[in-house]
């Protein structure tokens, strides 16, 4: 597939992130668990022993970054997979059957869209005292599927008028067969674009929740690192580095996802070309 230069850059950026997420915990030079406290070495700047310094507990920043990549990768893959599946099915069913089913499903979509997503995520996460990865996934999927549903419904409404769909119906194909064999494969392109953008979106929301102290209780997340940084805003020689490290990591992933998403959209969805 021929992709633009910037799409390649985006793809490589995402690949680096995925690699860091997969290998991170193994290549991390130090442990980041609560037992690894090293209080004499807290608030260190960059050095040979700690390339990116240490945090308020003396834990190595680079290792936290790599562990954070692991949890960000896990969460974004799972959330994008679940919400795109739900969205594709809902959108296809709504667009194919139309009528009352479409009306009900799209009203649900309207309800979820008439409200800022992050507040819904917060409400769900806040239901448990110590949110784990599971609650986080539920919270992010609760409204994550809406975008996919809209996109695939729109596609199906256009596809259902195509000759090959009419032909399949005329040949006696069942509804299920038309949806699985003719509709869903043909809307994978736009869905893939949406998934690429979604990847960045999930990471931003997760970081925001962790920043507000509602993140998953794993050893380190990028959002939790940012939260820690702003608690020590007055430690001027240290705070810039410790803010920039996780911040740039988040930016890296979101930028990569946007660049690749833009490139894929130009390639797979020509009618959208040039729009932002």
């Amino acid at each position: 597939m021929k992709l633009s230069m910037s799409a390649w850059v985006g793809g490589i950026m995402l690949a680096v992130f995925i690699l860091a997420g997969v290998l991170g915990p193994w290549i991390a030079p130090y442990d980041v668990g609560p037992h690894a406290l090293d209080l004499p070495n807290r608030f260190q700047g960059a050095s040979a022993a700690h390339w990116l310094g240490t945090d308020s507990k003396g834990l190595d920043t680079l290792s936290q970054l790599l562990w954070g990549a692991r949890s960000a990768l896990q969460l974004s893959i799972i959330v994008v997979a679940i919400s795109s599946t739900i969205g594709l099915v809902v959108g296809t069913v709504a667009g194919w059957y139309r009528g009352i089913i479409d009306e009900i499903l799209m009203r649900i979509v309207d309800v979820l869209m008439s409200f800022p997503g992050i507040l819904l995520n917060i409400a769900i996460v806040a239901t448990v005292a110590r949110p784990g990865l599971g609650v986080m996934i539920v919270a992010l999927c609760a409204n994550g599927w809406v975008g996919y549903a809209r996109v695939s419904r729109g596609q199906v409404l256009a596809l259902r008028e195509r000759d090959y769909v009419t032909a399949a119906v005329a040949l006696g194909a069942s509804n299920r067969r038309v949806m699985w064999r003719h509709l869903i494969p043909n809307l994978m392109g736009p869905a893939l674009v949406q998934m690429t953008f979604g990847f960045g979106g999930v990471i931003l929301v997760e970081a925001a929740l962790s920043f507000l102290g509602l993140g998953p209780q794993v050893d380190y997340t990028w959002g939790a690192m940012l939260d820690q940084a702003r608690t020590f805003l007055w430690k001027s020689d240290w705070v810039t580095l410790y803010t920039l490290v996780p911040g740039i990591a988040i930016m890296w992933v979101v930028l990569g996802a946007n660049l690749l998403g833009d490139g894929l959209r130009d390639r797979l969805d020509p009618r959208q070309r040039g729009r932002s």
Partner: peptide, 10 residues
């Protein structure tokens, strides 16, 4: 792409 959680504290 810039996260508000980094930009605002900075």
């Amino acid at each position: 792409a810039i996260p508000q959680m980094m930009f605002a504290p900075l």
